[in-house]
């Protein structure tokens, strides 16, 4: 799968309160959540972001709460993928569970600038920077995570296991 789009850039330690502030958590409706995505990191973001865009951030993206509303809000806003140097572990887990593609790459995080056009090959982790004509590689996705993706997320994976037992 090829994910191509324009980049919004964020820094270190973007926490889940910045991704989706708790004041909006009295609902879990994805479209409602998408209206406030990244609002406390950049209040104009929900208006600026377009379907098909990507987020590139630095270290520890998604730290803080366990709220799955965070990757749900990102996905529902039409953001195709998040690339960062590292992810907080619950966010990492949640993203695979709900099917938001995420990639870890120091080089991509350092070299990609806001507004760059990039193309991520989700199958092999190659990240092409079309604006700068550069190429980076993301860390390989662990085999179990690939199994989850192939199954279509944790719920589908669990369904299969229950049927098999």
């Amino acid at each position: 799968m090829i994910l191509k789009g324009k980049v919004w850039k964020f820094g270190d330690n973007i926490d889940t309160d910045a991704i989706i502030p708790a004041r909006y958590l009295n609902t879990s409706d994805p479209d409602e959540l998408a209206k406030h995505v990244m609002e406390d990191a950049d209040k104009d973001f929900p208006d600026k972001v377009k379907k098909g865009d990507l987020i590139v951030a630095e270290s520890n993206f998604g730290c803080g709460s366990s709220r799955e509303h965070a990757p749900i809000a990102i996905k529902a806003a039409g953001i195709q993928a998040v690339v960062a140097k590292s992810f907080a572990r619950i966010f990492y887990r949640n993203s695979f569970n709900i099917g938001l593609p995420i990639f870890e790459s120091d080089e991509a995080s350092e070299k990609i600038a806001e507004g760059d056009e990039i193309e991520v090959d989700a199958d092999n982790g190659t990240i092409k920077n079309l604006t700068k004509n550069e190429e980076y590689t993301a860390k390989p996705i662990p085999p179990f995570m690939q199994e989850l993706i192939a199954a279509g997320g944790l719920i589908e994976w669990t369904k299969k296991r229950i049927k098999a037992s």
Partner: peptide, 20 residues
């Protein structure tokens, strides 16, 4: 440890959870 809502959904059905 903290997990997401989907992990809990799966665990409520199976009584298990995957961990590294």
């Amino acid at each position: 440890t903290g997990v997401g809502s989907t992990d809990v959904a799966s665990a409520m059905a199976t009584g298990e959870c995957w961990f590294k």
